[in-house]
């Protein structure tokens, strides 16, 4: 979907601080310290109308250290998509959260944090989403090596380590819960939550 000239010009006007804007491929590059106002402006302008955050992800750059965030934002009325790149350097993996602008950013940003360790400032619920909180690695970073050969050799140790970690975490979790349920044995809250977990 190529952009109309009017839209391309409008985006140039709305985002003067962009590092680069390629109207041909509809690719916009922003600095890491961009303000969310840019996205709000692109969303609310009737010509650009970029209301639909269809995809948010990241990838590790090949030539240098660092992670680049990718936002695919679309307009459902004008049927065009703009790709926004935000390159981040290794020592500053932090950007503004887009959750106030697009609700859809909420989980997708959490996933990027989970997989790449990029922090999103102002995110309402900044936790890992897919992995356990006890995991101390960011799996999609290239320094986390997943070599089948290595993996098969170390399979036993890795597994033991992982299971031990989970066991320790679950024991830790169980301790305060058990203490509190003793205190308020009649409280329906803890009873219900336990029942639910079992069924």
């Amino acid at each position: 979907m190529s952009l109309s000239e009017e839209t391309a010009n409008r985006i140039r006007e709305l985002v003067p601080e962009a590092e680069s804007w390629d109207a041909e491929s509809a690719e916009l590059t922003l600095k890491g310290d961009f303000s969310t106002g840019i996205f709000a402006a692109l969303r609310d302008d009737p010509i650009t109308d970029l209301k639909y955050l269809r995809n948010l992800t990241a990838f590790e750059r090949m030539d240098e250290q660092g992670v680049t965030l990718v936002y695919h934002i679309a307009s459902l009325t004008h049927n065009h998509t703009v790709t926004v790149f935000v390159p981040l350097s290794e020592d500053a993996l932090v950007v503004q959260s887009l959750t106030p602008v697009f609700s859809a950013a909420n989980w997708q940003e959490r996933e990027v944090y989970d997989m790449f360790g990029v922090r999103f400032e102002g995110h309402p619920d900044h936790r890992r989403i897919l992995l356990e909180d006890t995991f101390d690695f960011y799996p999609l970073r290239k320094n986390f090596i997943l070599d089948p050969a290595v993996n098969l050799r170390n399979i036993k140790e890795r597994e033991d380590e992982m299971l031990k970690k989970i066991l320790a975490a679950s024991e830790e979790k169980a301790k305060p819960a058990a203490a509190s349920s003793e205190k308020s044995a009649s409280s329906s809250k803890s009873d219900d939550s336990k029942k639910g977990e079992a069924e």
């Binding site: 269809r54 995809n55 992800t57 990838f59 590790e60 090949m62 609700s103 859809a104 909420n106 989980w107 997708q108 996933e111 999609l140």
Partner: peptide, 19 residues
């Protein structure tokens, strides 16, 4: 692939369950 990301429709749709 250097990176393959799957934009999962269920993931995005489920996010709105609370609302």
């Amino acid at each position: 692939p250097w990176r393959f990301h799957l934009r999962a429709p269920s993931f995005a749709n489920l996010a709105a369950i609370e609302e």
